[in-house]
Design a protein around this nucleic acid. Structure first.
Length: 746
DNA sequence: CGGGCTGACATTTTT
DNA sequence: TGTCAGCCCG
């Protein structure tokens, strides 16, 4: 057996597989057989080291990775043993544990899980409640800040204590209300799944001890993409036995913008001084020509701790092609023409080719060219199945059946299909529920009682009561009806099909109804569970392990995909598009050194997807938001020696010079705010002002921004938001926070 | 209350 | 260029 498991593994891989005890850090270059190492190690632990599969926990970053790992393990170990292993994403594993133990945190185990769309809806409600404008306070930015706080395990109270800006102050208020609404809704967002688990472990050592005892061998894939909470989680679990095996590659870290903390991998040796560190440098995927170019790119990065020297026995191979296109259309034409040629020569099939780009918007021209050429293709990404509006609407009814306190779902379908409950009535309901201090569903229940003390006119009231009866009915039926029957019943009861036909033209209504039917079909696989568990199991899978739209590699079609999504994949022929300033690096990343380096790694990830031949393309002109703009080739191309390229260009190509002032400079993001200028001595800061202390035209002083003139002022949530024109620009400030001083007499 | 129109606005994405 | 939110009118 041992020979089987270790056969065809190189010495480093063997060492990674057979180092059973203690912390192990594997730095795995692209194409170095990382997944192989993970699966063979698990097999080795069980069949050679005699470890009980129940004691092994393997964490992956995506469901797809988890599924693939499990499939390979079934092949290696057989179905029976593989079933005993715990393989999953951080989120799925935490959700499972919380279902069991969240009661210790004083919460219910039948919580729902809010996805980002749910989060956004909830936050918009918060903004409205706090009388904040969505335009001025973008929900996604606020959610980003909340998510960041949660990743650092900073709760609403602590956050409020640490605010340093107007924006922070706004976030603090939103965060507090957002969190209490989550709780009221018996809901957890994705970040809470991780954060609450860490909290559970911290506050209940006995619970932690239980999981430490249960899982004595931990494996974590894509360790460079873990965030701080995930780091804490892993550290807590591994604390007792220290059998922690992590695999990652700093050079492929491309999710820092989402909270991934590259320090987790860089500091592994500090956290575990006795760690075995193994580098996997032999590449089994690409030609040496491709590796040389990729290496040159990544070696030019100033931020490298574990510099790897990738090598391969695959041979030199074709030179990397650098195509300089006249414009984006020419670029798409070239790529498609090249694919056609490769196919005609018998060198490739459509499925061997992948077209990769930085932004989804770039896929359009490529798709048009592929259609014209009659080449079959698939675009990875776009709106996923369970995120489609019609699917989420039906799901909202199911979630309400499981948990009527889910206020996001309630608000979502309170007027879908239309039943005469307009925005006005919904807002009244929200305000009233808040006055009562109860969830929306309970407010409806109060309304159904004898209370005369409510703000609703007769017609909206009866519409609300009807809706309440509907949800109460679904809630009763949940426990006695099989899932499929329940869905059918709900669809019929709310006349969903008719609603879709009313709202969309025939073709689109058909499409959407088909999606609803597909959801209905998905319920079939839960039919073998006990009736009372079917709904909960279904909702859990939908929230966490839904992956219906995933890439299908069995189709022989060209794959169009973003660079981010391409991680972990490989194709014989890879075309990278738009290697230009503004696109790669993206314009949003050009002001920040770390973001810029992440863009470099993104390109590195793309390049290392190629097995046989790599094409890098950039265009001199590109349509951007409907406007033709010229673009300069990416600065990253200058880091690859020109001798490694085979240059191809269309006649008439003229290079666009790089921008005169580099868009990135060390100084650009290091500006200090203007020093306060004062002409007279100033009095002690004023305490938080009473209502409307500021008025337009008033001269004020701020400690950081100096003197300014009040443009406008309005009251929000017991505070005053003052817009002040300072010397550089207008700023919105909160009176209680900003400590504005009045310089106007009187 | 609901349907249709106009104007601002633009990464990357998993769970 | 395309989407989404807000506004106006029936």
């Amino acid at each position: 057996m041992a020979t089987d498991l270790l056969a065809n593994l190189n010495p480093q891989q063997q060492r990674a597989v057979t180092t059973v005890m203690g912390p192990v850090l594997v730095l795995a270059g692209p194409g170095s057989g990382k997944t192989r190492v993970l699966t063979h190690r698990i097999a080795y632990l069980i069949s050679e080291a005699g470890i009980d599969p129940l004691q092994i926990l393997a964490v992956t970053f995506t469901n797809k990775a988890a599924r693939e790992m499990r499939e390979r393990l079934v092949l290696l170990l057989g179905e029976t043993i593989a079933t005993d292993l715990t393989v999953g994403t951080f989120h799925a594993i935490c959700a499972r544990w919380l279902r069991r133990d969240i009661i210790h945190l004083g919460r219910e185990r039948d919580f729902v899980i809010y996805d980002s769309d749910d989060q956004e809806r909830l936050l918009k409600r918060v903004l409205r409640e706090l009388n904040l404008n969505e335009k001025q306070h973008p929900p996604r930015a606020i959610l980003g800040a909340i998510s960041q706080a949660k990743n650092e395990l900073v709760g609403p109270e602590e956050f409020a204590r640490q605010t340093r800006s107007y924006f922070d102050e706004i976030v603090a208020r939103c965060y507090a209300r957002y969190q209490s609404l989550l709780r009221e809704s018996n809901a957890l967002d994705f970040d809470d799944l991780l954060g609450e688990t860490v909290r559970l472990f911290r506050e209940h050592p006995a619970v932690l001890a239980h999981y430490q005892q249960r899982y004595r061998f931990l494996l974590v894939d894509e360790y460079q993409d873990t965030n701080h909470v995930q780091y804490l989680l892993v550290r807590a679990l591994a604390e007792r036995d220290r059998n922690l095996f992590v695999v990652g590659d700093e050079a492929q870290s491309i999710y820092a913008w989402r909270g991934a903390d590259i320090r987790n991998i860089l500091q592994f040796e500090r956290d575990y001084p006795d760690a075995t560190v193994i580098m996997l440098e032999q590449n089994y995927r690409s030609t040496q020509a491709i590796l040389d170019a990729a290496q040159a790119l990544i070696n030019a990065s100033p931020q490298r701790k574990y510099a790897k020297r990738l090598w391969t026995t695959n041979g030199k191979g074709d030179q990397v092609v650098l195509y300089e296109a006249l414009n984006d259309e020419d670029e798409a034409q070239f790529v498609v023409g090249e694919i056609l040629r490769l196919i005609a020569e018998g060198a490739a099939r459509p499925g061997d080719c992948a077209i990769m780009y930085r932004t989804n918007a770039q896929s359009r021209l490529v798709e048009e060219a592929l259609v014209q050429a009659h080449l079959p293709y698939q675009v990875v990404g776009g709106v996923r199945f369970y995120e489609r509006k019609e699917v989420k609407d039906v799901l909202a009814y199911l979630r309400l059946a499981a948990n009527p306190y889910d206020s996001v779902s309630l608000q979502r379908v309170i007027n879908w299909p239309g039943r005469g409950i307009g925005d006005r009535t919904v807002n009244e309901l929200i305000v009233w529920a808040r006055q009562l201090g109860v969830p929306l569903y309970q407010a409806l229940s109060e309304l159904a009682g004898e209370t005369a003390d409510h703000p609703f006119a007769a017609r909206p009231r009866s519409a609300l009561l009807e809706f309440y009866a509907l949800i109460a009915e679904f809630n009763r039926l949940r426990a006695v009806m099989a899932l499929g029957d329940l869905i059918d019943y709900i669809l019929a009861r709310v006349e969903a099909h008719a609603a879709l036909k009313r709202e969309y033209d025939a073709e689109e209504a058909d499409d959407r109804w088909r999606n609803v039917q597909e959801l209905r079909n998905a319920a079939l696989s839960y039919a073998n569970l006990p009736v009372e568990h079917q709904l909960a199991a279904f909702l859990e899978d939908v929230a966490l392990v839904a992956d219906v739209d995933s890439l299908d590699r069995n189709n022989d079609v060209v794959t169009c995909i973003t660079l981010h999504q391409a991680k972990g994949l490989e194709f014989p022929y890879v075309f990278l598009l738009g290697i230009e300033e503004g696109l790669l690096p993206h314009s949003r990343s050009q002001t920040d050194r770390d973001a810029l380096e992440e863009e470099r790694r993104l390109l590195y990830v793309g390049m290392t997807r190629a097995q046989r031949r790599l094409y890098l393309c950039h265009a001199a002109q590109r349509a951007l938001f409907g406007r033709v703009t010229s673009s300069a080739r990416s600065r990253f191309l200058a880091d690859i020696p020109p001798t490694l390229f085979k240059l191809v260009r269309r006649r008439g190509y003229r290079a666009v010079p790089a921008p005169q002032t580099p868009m990135f400079s060390n100084r650009a993001f290091n500006q200090t705010p203007p020093a306060p200028r004062r002409d007279s001595g100033r009095s002690a800061p004023l305490p938080a002002p009473p209502k409307a202390a500021f008025f337009p035209g008033q001269r004020v002083y701020h400690a950081t921004f100096g003197e300014g003139i009040v443009v406008s002022s309005r009251l929000i949530e017991g505070d005053e938001e003052v817009t002040v024109r300072f010397s550089d620009r207008e700023r919105r400030l909160l009176a209680s926070f900003a400590r504005l001083e009045s310089l106007t007499d009187g």
